[in-house]
Design a binder for these strands. Structure first.
Lengths: 232, 232
DNA sequence: CTGTCTAAGAGGCTAGTCCAGTGAGCCAGT
DNA sequence: ACTGGCTCACTGGACTAGCCTCTTAGACAG
């Protein structure tokens, strides 16, 4: 049970109603040609049309609000945000959800930069987190595992060490894409030991506060990983 | 009425209960020293402690789930996501919705890559769009304008020429941040002619299918722009 | 020791009810 | 004719009570 939770990262479960509602409402917005400033139907009305209770609809609306798609105003209604772009972004992602090369490309771009920034800005705490990730990965590999957990930790630690919340957000965005497209295996090289070695190179450059070296090492690492992955 | 809506961007109103709950729960997580994988108290319990109904608590949990802080599992409970740092990141974003340097940094990272890709992948049509943008910008400057429209067109054309929808979406994401933080002026250099010249350099490298050159030219352009901007 | 069953407790969702803003329209007073 | 205040029919906000499904640990039988 522990294993499956680790590997899958998501349980098999989770068909939440409000998530479906978000999809449906997004689709409705598009089909009804609603633009920024337009109002969604009233909650009572919408709930009935969608065949759910108001309480559940309220959850979906909260989700849409957090996503920045709508702005719910007491007494007025749910008004579409200025830029429906977020909606289309999300929708767009769901459509062609399998552009592996492009995702690798984007990830590579961000991570190379993050590595360079991490080298320039890392604190001792950041370094400790990176080392810890390497230890975890090393331990996992010794246990015969692929070291995926440690790998994840490592990249998170590097992202944190870069101290750029905007870039971190973009990485989170991509991480989501990767998860949603069920490409969890992306980034898992064929040979764990080799991967560990390239991680160490990155860590060393960050420790030495060598931005160029860190960027190069990260680039090499990602190319190694994606080459292996794309040759399948 | 139109005016106030434009200026304020947010109405004076909006004290939503679930938003307060999100804050409180975030604070609780921190104070209780909860880490990744830990469980939040049961809904009924939490609702009582916070003095709200389950329905409202459910909305707060949806918000936290969308924000990536927790993962609610049917029958088990609300489990904290991998990294609790997300919480602080989110909080940070709410406070001062992204700082200028970080945005410049992220934009620079993406645009440099986009320029290189554009050089490698541009079609004749892409080239035509880029040239058109330069024409527009040139015309605007001749008319005494700052050439902002042409500038925008240019960057859009380059983004399009890179043929990477994922990176394009990340750029859209950043564009939104820039707008939302009311820093529309970001990227408008002090001297339009100088800016036009650096745009031409980028365009030339893309035309010549020279990725390194394009990347360099873009980097130089952005550094010029942001230097001017940051010296205010 | 192992497999199965069960019950407690978790979240998911609904229906009904009441409270609180919003804004259009009516109507009196100026 | 205008202005101010009032009302009322909307809107969302929140709560309550209850029932459903899912998860899991522990009891129990083999």
């Amino acid at each position: 049970m522990e294993k499956t939770a680790r590997l899958g990262l998501e349980r098999v479960t989770r068909p939440r109603l409000y998530e479906q509602l978000v999809e449906q409402i997004l689709a409705y917005i598009e089909s009804a040609q609603l633009g920024p400033g337009d109002l969604l139907p009233a909650e009572r009305d919408l709930a009935e049309r969608l065949g759910v209770s108001r309480a559940t609809l309220a959850q979906a609306l909260v989700a849409l609000e957090v996503l920045g798609v709508i702005d719910v105003q007491h007494g007025t209604g749910a008004v579409l945000a200025r830029r429906p772009s977020v909606a289309s972004v999300i929708k767009g992602l769901r459509e062609h959800r399998s552009r592996l090369p492009e995702i690798v490309e984007a990830r590579s771009t961000l991570e190379v930069k993050l590595a360079a920034l991490a080298a320039a800005r890392r604190t001792e705490d950041d370094l400790a987190a990176i080392d810890h990730a390497l230890d975890v990965m090393s331990q996992e590999i010794n246990d015969g595992d692929r070291g995926t957990h440690g790998d994840e930790l490592f990249h998170q630690a590097v992202t944190g060490a870069a101290h750029s919340s905007v870039l971190a957000q973009l990485m989170a965005f991509i991480a989501e894409m990767i998860l949603e497209t069920r490409m969890e295996s992306l980034g898992q090289p064929g040979r764990p030991e080799q991967s560990l070695a390239s991680h160490r190179k990155i860590a060393d450059a960050i420790r030495a506060q060598d931005p160029e070296g860190a960027a190069e090492a990260m680039l090499a690492h990602i190319e190694l990983v994606s080459d292996v992955e794309l040759l399948r």
